[in-house]
């Protein structure tokens, strides 16, 4: 076996060890520093493959810039979309309920659902699957509020639980929204759904 082949096998072993470290760290993904570390490890692994297996380390500098240019385009794309997404989320900021919020809720009871405010919530969070017409693409991406009257035939309490906790049914899984939406927003969006798609 020649020296090059030995080096390739050592690099392969390093890549496997790096993968093992990532998986071990994966147990602690709640921590931002850990998530960043996992992606730094991924970048190092990718660089090892590109530099050594694809020999880019040993090529002329201008050839490296062919790949570098594509990476710069990706970074520019990220820089371009991030402000848009940040703006979108600042219009109705994701709300995480803290103990302090719960205390406020006790002091200040929820207002009755406001369909107008609920419409904004629907247009941001629900429309992607339930669609603007409330039919969920004919009940394929989410519950069809119009075509299946049993959907809105449930009590407010049942529907608010589904919105807060999510639900897995025949169509698929609706994620839980209690992290992204406040209790008031959930009551509002239910008012909007009932007013817009409910039996008239």
């Amino acid at each position: 076996m020649n020296a090059h082949d030995k080096k390739y096998i050592v690099i392969w072993a390093v890549l496997l060890v790096a993968m093992g470290v990532s998986i071990a760290l994966g147990e602690f993904v709640g921590n931002t520093a850990v998530v960043v570390t996992i992606f730094v490890i991924a970048a190092v692994k990718a660089w090892l493959v590109v530099a050594e297996f694809m020999h880019l380390r040993y090529e002329a500098p201008w050839l490296k810039w062919v790949l570098g240019g594509a990476l710069l385009a990706v970074v520019a794309f990220l820089g371009g979309v991030t402000p848009d997404v940040a703006f979108h989320w600042s219009v109705i900021p994701p709300k995480v309920e803290t103990p302090a919020d719960a205390a406020v809720a006790v002091v200040k009871p929820l207002e009755p659902g406001d369909a107008e405010r609920g419409g904004k919530v629907y247009g941001t969070y629900c429309v992607g699957c339930h669609m603007a017409d409330g039919k969920g693409n004919g009940g394929t991406t989410a519950a069809d509020f119009i075509g299946d009257p049993s959907r809105l035939g449930k009590t407010d309490e049942e529907l608010l639980t589904s919105i807060a906790e999510g639900k897995t049914g025949t169509i698929g899984t609706m994620p839980p929204w209690k992290g992204a939406l406040s209790a008031q927003q959930r009551v509002d969006v239910l008012a909007y759904v009932r007013a817009t798609f409910g039996a008239k």
């Binding site: 790949l67 990476l71 979309v81 997404v85 989320w89 994701p94 994620p175 929204w177 992204a180």
Partner: peptide, 21 residues
């Protein structure tokens, strides 16, 4: 790289905005 980079970055931005994913 540009094709997958754009796709992956779109996912990353959405993922950061949606902790519930």
């Amino acid at each position: 790289v540009a094709i997958f980079g754009g796709l992956i970055m779109s996912y990353v931005v959405c993922r950061v905005a949606h902790p519930e994913w």
